[in-house]
Design a binder for these strands. Structure first.
Lengths: 339, 339
DNA sequence: CTGAAAGCGCTAACAA
DNA sequence: TTGTTAGCGCTTTCAG
């Protein structure tokens, strides 16, 4: 590992025969510089392949590092990936780069990542909170001027900005869509644990729709499934129960995929389905799946905008931005009750 | 923005009444320290909520920053997201964090990201090369001891380590699977432009399978489609042509989804299909889609292992690691030719 | 076991 | 228009 020392500002200065500060001025377009030296400096920079050390720069300037820390549960999940992409495109213009880590929804890993990010002096911190995590420990950092934004779910133990989907309204709209189609027995299948924020909100929207329509809330129609397989089994069971539903509201896409499989296995293509969160294959299935689409990229950009405003001095109260969902009728939600 | 100054090593030292170096020693378990001071220091650290500034540390130590730079075309794509997750889990134990950016397959954006990452002195650079990018400019960085690993596709203009899927073997296997099932007219539908590395390799695998089976290579059966819609139309056209295929090999998942839609619109459920790259919905469709599954997480970990080995002094020649694909027969590939 | 001085690469503040 | 000095927060080197 006898890697040659990287060329520094001083090397360039020496090459040209000026002071380091002059090179710095040229590179940052800072103070006044003569055309002559400017040209010579640029030539030397090119010749030596000099690349300024951003760590050193950030440190001297004293401000935060030019990164945004982002913690999501799972990088392979396109929902979170798209959120990340939204953030990136919004902060890129400001010269900020994404420092990313995945928590696997594990509070300890989340905490470790946060510690690392704070140590790196990120400009802002964006977190999709792990299920059982507490965020009180972030208070100091926020007081020190570092914006904290929670994504997808509000954080716990700390009042901070957050950006979420309109889970409740979206699910209500989806459920109402089924009711309007004539359904009176509609099952809800959601994630576990039942205390999960998104699960709670979506269930609440489902119940609101039932109430508005004066339909009874039947607990035997509320199903759980943390994996696709579990969801499929739960659906299979309820379809074989004495009083099966004629429609199903799947509260996330694992549940939706499991529901489709369960229906296929039960040989019931006549059950209506609305899925919360859009799926790449929703249009390909037959019938195509009616979905309540979220807008993950918008969640990302909204979060980035809040963080940037905070960095620009916005000191108003913490707010929660709700990104609207959109019902996309495609066919599966339009099946009439057949039971 | 009157954010209070963050507490530093000196603040802690002053609080305890020792020198900064002593605090440093305690925190890094470096030199010898007495139990007494150790305890006092830890107490002060806790009380003041001190978090060492990693930028300063990295700078002083002189080594690279404790980050790995990763550039992918699209964060919302679960394939690349999963690759990223694989990298992260492999480098986390070494205390490295992921610095991520998306190029949108645009050489200029890729270049800008690389410049930023080099400026940050990342420990290693991992790049899914943008289609038309040249990477000769990375030679200097690599000479300076920074590992460069290309993912999914080899880089251009620079001999460096790379990790790719077994595109050719996988496609050959998938095609052979269809041939074994009795098909003699098999269409290939892939990405554009046709010069794309993965497209070329996969087409080559398809042709190899045909040759081995002494089947003619018919250009009219080679289709393009950069989007799902384009793929669907191409499939529709070929199915209505004078000599339609009885099976289709879709070389990526956009093509596969488009193919499914095209078949549905044509009312042809009797066309066999094998798709390169697994799809979340492959199992849900009817018939379930036979796929040649890639292993994106393994691609990520393999890349990380190469980079870490290089950091540990591995100076052997640049190598290309091929991560095997796996044929998953599910039904769509088992349909017999019916034409 | 602990401390003092020097310096990583860069820029702020002043001076020339 | 340019240079000098000092110092960001930390660790290395060398003395105690």
């Amino acid at each position: 590992m006898a890697s040659p020392r990287r060329t520094t500002l001083h090397d360039v200065a020496q090459e040209v025969g000026v002071s380091a500060k002059t090179v710095s001025r040229v590179l940052n377009g800072d103070g006044p510089t003569s055309e002559a030296t400017r040209a010579k400096v640029m030539a030397a920079v090119d010749k030596l392949g000099f690349q300024p050390n951003l760590m050193a720069r950030n440190m001297r300037v004293g401000g935060p590092d030019s990164t945004v820390g982002l913690i999501i549960p799972d990088m392979g999940n396109p929902f979170f990936g798209t959120v990340a992409g939204g953030i990136e495109s919004a902060v890129r213009e400001r010269g900020l780069t994404l420092l990313m880590g995945s928590s696997a929804d594990d509070p300890d890993r989340e905490r470790a990542l946060i510690t690392t990010f704070l140590g790196r002096r990120v400009s802002a911190l964006m977190v999709v909170p792990a299920a059982a995590a507490d965020h009180g420990h972030l208070r100091a950092a926020r007081t020190a001027g570092m914006p904290v934004v929670f994504l997808d779910r509000p954080g716990t133990g700390l009042t901070a900005d957050s950006v979420v989907s309109s889970n409740r309204d979206g699910t209500r709209e989806g459920t109402t869509h089924l009711i309007t189609g004539g359904h009176r027995r509609i099952a809800f299948i959601g994630d576990r644990p039942a205390t999960l924020y998104t699960r709670r909100e979506r269930l609440a929207g489902y119940r609101e729709a039932l109430e508005t329509a004066h339909l009874p809330y039947d607990r035997s129609l509320v199903l759980d499934g943390h994996t696709e397989a579990e969801a499929a089994e739960a659906v299979l069971r309820v379809l074989h129960s004495p009083h099966p539903p004629t429609a199903i509201l799947a509260a996330n896409n694992f549940a939706a995929m499991g529901t489709v499989r369960g229906m296929v296995r039960a040989g019931r293509r006549d059950i209506a389905l609305v899925s919360f969160d859009d799926l790449p294959f929703a249009e390909v299935l037959e019938p195509a799946i009616t979905t309540v689409a979220q807008d993950p990229a918008a969640i990302g950009t909204a979060a980035a905008e809040i963080a940037l405003a905070r960095l620009d001095g916005d000191r108003t109260r913490a707010r929660t931005v709700t990104v609207p969902t959109r019902l996309i009728p495609r066919g599966s939600g339009e099946l009439p009750p057949s039971a």
